[in-house]
C-alpha cells in the first residue's frame, strides 16, 4: 500500500481551529485547560500528548511611525501536527516497540503497549510527542464545573489510559475504514489535505509554482529530506516565511545518529581506565 500523509498549505489557513476541535472530538482528547496567552489568537500554544493539531498565529507588524496605529502587514497561520518522519526519533527510541510504522507509513503509538517511560518525548526533534497526564490530573477537568459523577462519566478512553505517550495517529482508525482524518475532513479551506504522498507532493509543487507566478514566495518544508538523517516528512508544509517563524526547526537532527560517537567515547574511556586499573592492581 502506498504511504499516506498530510500536506498543510499555510497560505490557505484562516485560523478557524476547526482542525483542533475535530481532532479533539474524534480522538476523545481532554481539554488542556483554559488560558488566554495574549499571543495573537493562539491559546493552544503547542502540540501535546492530548493536543494533536495546533494552529499557530503570527502577526507580522509593519512599524510605521506616521500611522496612528501599527498596521498588520502579514498574518500567518499554520496548523501544526506530528510530522510522521520517515526516520522517526520517537519510534527508534521506544524501548517497548509501542511506537510503530503502520501499513499507511504513519508513525503510530500503541497505547496498550506503551509503558510511559518518556524516552520518545526527548527523542523527537520536533517536540511533538508528550506524555498524557494520568487521569487524576485535576487540570483536565477544571474547565467544566462538572459534578463528581459527571466527571467520571466524562472520562474518555485516552484519559483512562493516562501515563502513556500521545500524539497524532493520522486518524489510523478512520483511515482503516477509508475515511479522511478528522482534521482534514473538517478543514473548510483545504489548507489541510490528506492523501497518498506522491500525489500530495505533486500537488504541493504545483501550488508553489502557481504562487510564484502570483509573486508569493513560498517553499515546502518536509516534502523532501529535511536533513539530519530524518528523511522526508509524511506530514509536510507549505510556508511563506522561515521555518523558525512557525516554531519549526531549521536543522532538525535524528538523535540516534549520535549513538556511534557516544558508544565509541564510552568504550575509549573504559579501555583507558581498565589499562590504568591493570597497572595499579596487577603490578608487583
Amino acid at each position: 500500500m502506498s504511504e499516506t500523509g498530510f500536506f498543510t498549505d499555510t497560505t490557505l489557513c484562516i485560523g478557524c481551529k476547526a482542525c483542533e476541535v475535530a481532532c479533539k472530538q474524534w480522538n476523545e482528547l481532554p481539554s488542556d485547560g483554559f488560558a488566554f496567552t495574549g499571543e495573537s489568537y493562539d491559546n493552544t500554544s503547542q502540540l501535546s500528548g492530548t493536543t494533536w493539531r495546533h494552529v499557530a498565529f503570527v502577526e507580522q507588524v509593519a512599524i510605521e511611525p506616521a500611522a496612528p496605529s501599527p498596521i498588520v502587514e502579514k498574518w500567518l497561520m499554520m496548523s501544526d501536527v506530528c510530522k510522521h518522519c520517515t526516520n522517526a526519533g520517537c519510534q527508534e527510541a521506544c524501548p517497548t516497540g509501542a511506537i510503530v510504522k503502520n501499513e499507511f507509513g504513519n508513525v503510530y503509538v500503541q497505547p496498550d503497549v506503551c509503558n510511559g517511560c518518556g524516552y520518545c518525548v526527548v527523542s523527537c526533534p520536533f517536540g511533538v510527542i508528550d506524555l498524557i497526564d494520568p487521569i487524576d490530573d485535576e487540570r483536565k477537568f477544571s474547565v467544566a464545573t462538572l459534578s463528581e459523577s459527571r466527571r467520571d462519566a466524562n472520562q474518555t478512553a485516552i484519559q483512562k489510559s493516562g501515563g502513556v505517550a500521545g500524539k497524532c495517529t493520522l486518524c489510523y482508525d478512520r483511515q482503516k475504514i477509508g475515511e479522511t482524518p478528522a482534521c482534514a475532513k473538517a478543514c473548510p479551506t483545504e489548507s489541510i489535505q490528506f492523501g497518498v504522498l506522491d500525489e500530495l507532493r505533486e500537488r504541493a509543487a504545483e501550488r508553489v509554482a502557481s504562487l510564484a507566478e502570483r509573486g508569493v514566495d513560498a517553499h515546502l518544508y518536509g516534502a523532501d529530506d529535511v536533513g539530519g538523517g530524518i528523511g522526508s516528512l509524511n506530514a509536510f508544509f507549505l510556508l511563506t516565511d522561515r521555518p523558525e517563524v512557525y516554531n519549526l526547526p531549521v536543522e532538525p537532527v535524528l538523535p540516534s545518529t549520535r549513538q556511534p560517537a557516544g558508544y565509541t567515547a564510552a568504550a575509549g574511556a573504559a579501555i583507558a581506565l581498565a589499562l590504568a586499573g591493570w597497572a595499579i592492581f596487577r603490578s608487583r
Partner: peptide, 23 residues
C-alpha cells in the same frame, strides 16, 4: 518507579531493539 505505567515494565522485555539505548 519512573514509568507512567509501572505495571507495564515487562513490556520492555517483549522486544529487543539494539537501536534504542533504553531497550
Amino acid at each position: 518507579s519512573h514509568l507512567g505505567r509501572p505495571e507495564r515494565f515487562l513490556h520492555m522485555l517483549r522486544t529487543f531493539k539494539p537501536g534504542s539505548p533504553m531497550s
